[in-house]
Design a protein around this nucleic acid. Sequence first.
DNA 1: CGCAATTTGTTGAGCTTTCAATTAGATAGG
DNA 2: CCTATCTAATTGAAAGCTCAACAAATTGCG
Lengths: 154, 154
Amino acid sequence: MTRWLDPDEQRTWRAFLAASRALMTTLDRELQHDAGMPHAYYEILVRLSEVPGQTLRMSELAEATGSSRSRLSHAVARLEESGWVRREECPTDRRGQLAVLTEAGLAALSAAAPGHVQGVRQHLFDQLSPVQLTQLREISEALLHHLEPDRPTS
Amino acid sequence: MTRWLDPDEQRTWRAFLAASRALMTTLDRELQHDAGMPHAYYEILVRLSEVPGQTLRMSELAEATGSSRSRLSHAVARLEESGWVRREECPTDRRGQLAVLTEAGLAALSAAAPGHVQGVRQHLFDQLSPVQLTQLREISEALLHHLEPDRPTS
DNA sequence: CGCAATTTGTTGAGCTTTCAATTAGATAGG
DNA sequence: CCTATCTAATTGAAAGCTCAACAAATTGCG
């Protein structure tokens, strides 16, 4: 007894799917082209840059960026090779690792940020009315509220 | 002279980012687990199932699924291995290839669809009011209208 | 205390995606 | 007709992601 999507729902779902995919791939491509990093890596640098000491536990960083631990491990390994992040032992928990934004990482972020923000403006904010932006925020937060609770940590 | 995002914009952008990512990874995981295919492949089967003859040119299929030609080539190769799609020569253009949904492909799609639709309902439609769904459709279509025109075909 | 259960983070394999290069066929202008 | 240009689709390599398995440290509880 599946309740299928009616034509209206179908249209909504497909528009959302296509729009979010198009937006993401566009921003990802721009960032890769202009700054040599995918959007996921940019986000890691951003989160680190915002906290005191530019340092976060791996698990907190995974949480903040909405990525799995595994993905984050691989990503930080890559960022470490680039010299943008370094790892340190966690003083309070010997299992823990701290990811620390380096000088070079901050520089790379500073270089990438203006272009990226411009892209976000151009492709998102400039296309919607202030009212729509409020609606989008409320919609997104409702979805998040539902999805966040049980996110796998693998 | 970068115009940075103000706190409100920041909140909107991050909520949207987190929500669309969480929704996608959730649906992708569900589909992979229950039906053994990623969401992108499911979409290919859906598009093929909807057209007369269950057949589309590779380029049309790429367009319909919003994927690059390269990605589609790889994906169809994979789907062919699974026996869910087969390729045929295009009669009117010798460069062309037709992707055709097989019986087995239709069966796999039919098996996957109910669970997937339920997921979409649960994680998207059930979380938003009718008004919000209309808003989301309009927002998505506005974004699409802007992004669609120049999508790379590489 | 002592041991089971949980948490943290990593690893490697396999799969998907991207990018740039390439082949082959169609098309338009002179 | 013939050549330059464009379009269709594929390819391989490099990169990123997912999943399951794992090691090490911590926690909770009898």
